[in-house]
Write a protein that binds this DNA or RNA. Structure first.
Lengths: 342, 342
DNA sequence: TCGTTGTCATCAATCGATTGCAATATACCC
DNA sequence: GGGTATATTGCAATCGATTGATGACAACGA
């Protein structure tokens, strides 16, 4: 292991002062002779000199580093979001500090503090969807000394830039499509109990039904956590109804449902139609490809970075910006068109 | 946005010197009267004081931050590794800076430099599997001023701690199992051209064949990149052989193969048996569940952190440590037992 | 010769913490 | 009262960089 080389050492070797070396290496258009300029650069290169960002950011008061907190980096959607966001940050010379919290508000808070004390210039937060006690977190976010952008989900009622997909619209589009295909008895499988996102998707589902005068039947609304086994459990009851179609409000929920369908020997869309959300690997693999509401994480990342960028530049008014993105319905093969018998 | 509160401000408010405040907040068993101790703590809490790690690590010469470079955070295996590793680091009070390179040696190098200048105390490297020009990277790693641990893959011939699964053994175990089940014509689908890992798995495959006196038939060895479409392409040729079983040497390769099989109406294991590697979501979902060689990323993370921990503590000899982990064969339902007709 | 201008380079303060070394105050002993 | 413990606390240097203020020196004009 080599030693770290400092500015001072370079200066000593060249026989000039540290300030001169700093000036040259930062390419300041200052008054250092061409001759010395070359010399310094050469010595620095020869010694593998790399400036110490820690020291630099102490005086510069910026680190060109951003932070990201996601609930679970092992989820495909968040991993993809993290990947896109990092790429985007790097394009602008920022490093991205990716962290994964486990989803609890306490962990989120802990990570947030870690990031702040480590001097990130701003944070992207994917937090606050579940109904846990987030008072401390909310408090911390509102007193943050650096800009924050909430991504994909939000702590309700917090004045803060937000970038997210319109979950209500997603639920609406999915259901609306099923209705257009002639379905009348449409079940849904959502995480409304513990997730704001889930609630919104449910609201969209209900709006679509109301809009065409279909009844909202509580017996067709099923609850599931965002985990495959949970959805698998819940699906049995779904299949006991007379529904001809199901709106599965997340990718994992869809997967749990599919597993159950498969086990029961039901075929899609022959026996039942399915609209999913956020298709993951599954559609690459097996027939039928799932019709789904898609949210492109890359788009989310792009807008989130945009917001952050403005804040960092000191632009962007005092008020929080709120970007709402429309999800897209991708039609594939999991929905049967019913001949309208009405 | 609130302002950042500094030690000095706290000191001023309390009417004591910054040094005293520092002493108290770090719980030094020193000096300082109980009375003032309480006072300081209270004022610090009231002002939401959080120490500036940047300043602190400048003088302490450690940041309690580690770095991780993975080729692609969107891959399930690496995401899982990153998740486990972060959790493990946090248990010991370290934050983990997760970065994702895209896989090229230049990007790896760039990220490594970023991490080092940002003052991480050590780095976990998942780099160097592909045959690209890694001279600069190799050079950088060997001159690193901080400990590095190579995880899951390695730059060949570099004196550096390494933690990885035995890929040769994995290939061997998979093939050996197929042989034991009575298969004699066993194809394999590997990324031997561009991946060291792939080469090793191929070597294991061949060893198993040799061991029982089966011929090594180049017509049964197929090349595929680690991407689903690539494997999908390659699979057509595989299925044109008389092989009764296939060893698919990565999860994505298995998925591409499965897709092709499905499209051709072939059933597993009825028409052909499959042993996969690193099962991802697929086996949760559909029948038959895949028999596979499993590498637990959590185990990898645990050992990697162990190595790092030793280095950070200054223990661990001058020589590099090399930890080789055995993968595990998980038997499920994708292999048919052939009645031995010999 | 003095003043002015311009060029090249250094000084010294600063960022926010940590810490060894003094300094002050009080008490206690002879 | 002078000397010595003991208990508290402050000073100032330090980490490695950045940067506005300042200095040294040569050339040139008046």
């Amino acid at each position: 292991m080599a030693n770290k080389v400092t500015l001072k050492q370079i200066a000593q070797e060249v026989g000039l002062s540290p300030s001169s070396v700093s000036l040259v290496l930062n390419n300041r258009p200052c008054r250092i002779s061409e001759e010395n300029r070359k010399l310094i650069k050469e010595v620095a290169a020869r010694n593998h000199y790399v400036p110490n960002q820690i020291a630099r950011s102490l005086v510069m008061r910026e680190s060109r580093t951003l932070g990201l907190i996601v609930p679970n980096i092992e989820s495909r959607f968040f991993a993809s979001l993290a990947g896109s966001l990092e790429k985007r940050c790097r394009e602008d010379g920022y490093a991205l500090f990716i962290t994964s919290s486990g989803g609890s508000a306490e962990d989120d808070l802990e990570l947030l503090r870690q990031l702040v004390t480590r001097g990130v210039d701003g944070v992207f937060l994917v937090v606050g969807d579940e109904f846990s006690d987030d008072r401390a977190l909310r408090e911390e976010v509102s007193h943050l000394p650096i800009p924050a952008v909430m991504v994909d989900r939000a702590i309700e009622g917090l004045e803060c830039d937000k970038v997210m997909f319109d979950h209500e619209m997603g639920g609406y589009m999915a259901t609306r499509y099923l209705i257009e295909q002639g379905h009348r008895r449409i079940a849904c499988l959502v995480n409304a109990r513990r997730s704001n996102t889930g609630r919104k998707r449910l609201a969209g589902y209900e709006r679509a039904l109301r809009e065409v005068g279909l009844p909202i039947d509580a017996r067709l609304e099923f609850e599931s956590e965002y985990y495959i086994p949970s959805a698998y459990e819940a699906s049995e009851a779904v299949l006991a109804t007379d529904a001809t179609a199901v709106f599965a409000s997340s990718d994992n929920i869809a997967l749990g449902l599919l597993k159950r369908l498969h086990e029961m020997g039901k075929s899609i869309p022959g026996d039942i139609s399915v609209v999913s959300y956020d298709n993951s690997a599954a559609d690459v693999l097996f027939e039928p490809a799932l019709t789904a509401i898609e949210q492109d994480p890359g788009v989310l990342a792009e807008h989130a970075f945009g917001c952050m960028s403005k804040r960092l530049a000191g632009k962007g008014g005092r008020r929080a910006e709120e970007v709402v993105l429309e999800p897209v319905l991708i039609v594939k093969d999991s929905v049967l068109e019913l001949t309208k018998h009405n």
